[in-house]
Design a protein around this nucleic acid. Structure first.
Lengths: 301, 301
DNA sequence: CTGAAAGCGCTAACAT
DNA sequence: ATGTTAGCGCTTTCAG
């Protein structure tokens, strides 16, 4: 019999299997934009973890669009996935209602969402601590005029990281100079950061260091610095938060506070799997990020 | 009746639908590595095209591993996808046999594969022409000692682009100096390119320009140049092929010959859809890449 | 033109 | 232990 199976190259029809078993052995992930390195690496990490558990992963992107977010969630539900991890970018109530109503297990990944925390497992980094770690490192180098590049959204990781920046500066220097905190849009991070930094270097030439709340912000800083004749790591120190692979290959290599992507992938997957009811139901502790010292902070000198 | 549908929030079970209709309205894509910007953007382009045609896209990566490639293809077949686009990285015969045997429409995307061309639609860029375009631009700036950063694999896009580099140099200068053609590994492009370029700048300080066969190679060139005191766009001109989004934000912005990702996505999708039998069966003409002039080539001066 | 019935390929529950 | 059967939710075909 087994011979026949091998000979004829029989393969079970997974569609029929899914229909009958009422389980597709597939998880879903919804992130804003896969062409952004951070989300691509996050998705890869979740996929690795899912594969490890014998599940496939369906990866969807929303382009930061609230209705696309809802559509993609609906599409995943239609596809009968066994669990969904979501990095929300908008008002989380509509997606939360949809997900809760569906009965499918879900988690919030990388971003928590005001108003639905506590109802659903949350797998996030300790972003506030990360901002503080980055800034403390800069302060440790003796910098006293430190800019922070951030975004507008309250409650986002970027915003948390900025809070950490403020914590560190306030603890060390007593007060935060608000004109050194640059909030830029969310669409073209590197470009917007470049512009903001360019004008800051003109008005506040006394800045000696920058805490970038994402790697992309840091890219913009590099460009602005070059055009102002500032040398990264020598006359302008930079540390960023995220730690995507590409930061190793900037010139000079970027010092980062790195998100523990693998651990996040594993936690998210674990929380979606059957049997997670007890262990993972409560919002998981934020995961610590770790400092990776390279050259942009001035350590290489 | 329609009211009841709306009231109860009824949604057809797509799994059952697929089982009955014997079509999942889903296409599959297999690429080497989604954390590489080029493939992430390629995948996004294919997904846009598929969505446009009312199809979902299942995206899989192989990590450049031949057995994972086969496994992912098998997984897509098991999932009953209606068509598969593959960017192969190894001997294409095993995947080709599998795919042909399955009866599912498929295409080769971005890379063709020796030995199976002609049996399957091929959607690729005109990489040889692209290499020539990049090099001609450098020659047009007056450069006469031009290095080329490339990879080892015969038949790959990178290899084609190098052939284009050779075409251009030979046409303009009569002969190619082989020690200016640097072949680096495929795993850590930027890092390896950095090393190769570092040693080249030491042994051949007379090079004034570089044709990078991928954007990643160019990143390595930027780093090596900086450490040698060479200024990109001023004392070292660089043009690369690919044109991923990040190249805009290098300092100075990278001049590229850009792959027409959207068009490739559309072609690949079209060839997989029913009714493509006549139109798309023959290997499609390679798609032209276009020069995007920015600053790294010296045009900004 | 509307409505009932068969069956896609599989698995879980059942009877032998 | 092994073999048989019902039915997952839908669509398509066929009868009314």
């Amino acid at each position: 019999v087994e011979e026949a199976v091998a000979q004829l190259g029989y393969r079970p029809n997974t569609v029929a299997q899914s229909l009958r078993r009422r389980s597709t052995m597939t998880l879903g992930l919804v992130v804003p934009d896969l062409t952004k390195a951070f989300f691509a690496e996050l998705a890869a990490a979740v996929e690795r973890a899912a594969l490890q558990e014998g599940r496939r992963l369906l990866i969807c992107s929303t382009q930061f669009d609230a209705v696309r977010e809802l559509e993609q969630l609906q599409a995943l539900l239609d596809a009968q996935v066994d669990g969904i991890a979501l990095t929300p970018t908008h008002d989380p109530r509509a997606p939360a209602d949809l997900l809760r109503g569906s009965g499918v297990p879900w988690v919030l990944l990388h971003r928590h969402a005001n108003g639905v925390d506590g109802q659903v497992p949350v797998v996030v980094g300790a972003d506030r601590q990360a901002g503080r770690t980055a800034t403390d490192h800069l302060l440790g180098h003796g910098h006293r005029t430190i800019a922070c590049l951030t975004g507008p959204e309250a409650g986002s990781p970027v915003h948390e990281r900025t809070a950490g920046f403020r914590d560190a500066v306030r603890a060390a220097l007593g007060r935060v100079e608000e004109d050194l905190v640059l909030s830029v849009g969310y669409d073209h991070l590197a470009e917007d950061a470049y512009r903001a930094m360019t004008s800051l270097l003109a008005t506040r030439p006394d800045v000696t260091a920058v805490c970038a709340t994402t790697d992309e912000h840091a890219f913009g800083v590099y460009r602005a610095a070059a055009e102002h004749g500032r040398r990264i790591g020598r006359t302008l120190a930079v540390v960023s938060v995220d730690g995507t692979a590409q930061t190793r290959f900037l010139t000079p290599a970027l010092t980062v506070v790195a998100v523990p992507l693998d651990e996040m992938g594993r936690r998210a997957t674990a929380a979606l799997l059957p049997g997670a009811g007890a262990a993972a139901r409560p919002s998981v502790e934020p995961l610590p990020l770790s400092l990776v010292v390279r050259s942009s902070c001035g350590c290489a000198r």
